[in-house]
Design a protein around this nucleic acid. Structure first.
Lengths: 111, 111
DNA sequence: TTACATACCCAACTTTCTTAGGTATATTAG
DNA sequence: CTAATATACCTAAGAAAGTTGGGTATGTAA
């Protein structure tokens, strides 16, 4: 993450993107995150690719390589196991965000 | 963080607690986070103490040790520099959370 | 031919957290 | 008196997940 504030959520973000899109390639994911966050967040390719490889290793993603306009594209998709994990991880992240907000918003007078 | 979902926010949490309380000791911080998150989050002492020491090193916190009921308590407070940093870091974390939510909530049909 | 966008990748390093302890006092249960 | 639990501080070794700083290669626009 470019925005070194929230770490440990990259894997969950990847899974969520693939839940929404059925198949995506790495470079496309970096664009999508930039867009969804209105340019405020940027995943670096150096963090992304190793994370994708790990997810494949763990059996959560499968790949399919294609040549498009002379360039290689390695598409990733969720496996059945990956879909289950996505639900679990997305829910866990949402819960963690809520807790974090409770921590950050307690102790305010009312301004 | 016990909840290994969100990393990198421990320092900001410490600063925020001290913004709300003027002085706190380490053990108290672990209780406060547990309470604010309704037992969903738990900061470990092994993560907390090194983080506190680093913040003192960086000039963001000062300490004052007292004996209370036969036990040592090391109180931490924000320095002037620490107060400024707190504002910066809390705002950055809130913005990051918002971006993260945008990422997680895009692509939903409406169910 | 230079620059930029697209598209994949790796190695070395750093930061931050977890795991797994250690020390010590006060209080409660038996 | 003893054991367990809560309070209260701490460290060292290792893992995990990033960052920094590259590399390779094609297509397109200036």
């Amino acid at each position: 993450m470019d925005n070194k504030v929230i770490k440990g959520s990259l894997t969950t973000i990847i899974l969520k993107l693939l839940e929404d899109n059925s198949r995506m390639y790495g470079y496309e994911m970096t664009r999508e995150v930039k867009e969804r966050s209105q340019d405020k967040m940027q995943i670096t390719e150096a963090a992304l690719y190793p994370a994708l490889h790990k997810l494949v290793e763990e059996g959560l993603l499968t790949t399919h390589t294609e040549m498009v306009e002379g360039r290689m594209r390695k598409y990733y998709s969720l496996t059945k196991k990956g879909k289950k994990e996505t639900d679990v991880k997305v829910e866990a992240l949402k819960a963690a965000i809520e807790s974090l907000q409770n921590i950050l918003n307690t102790g305010l007078s009312h301004g």
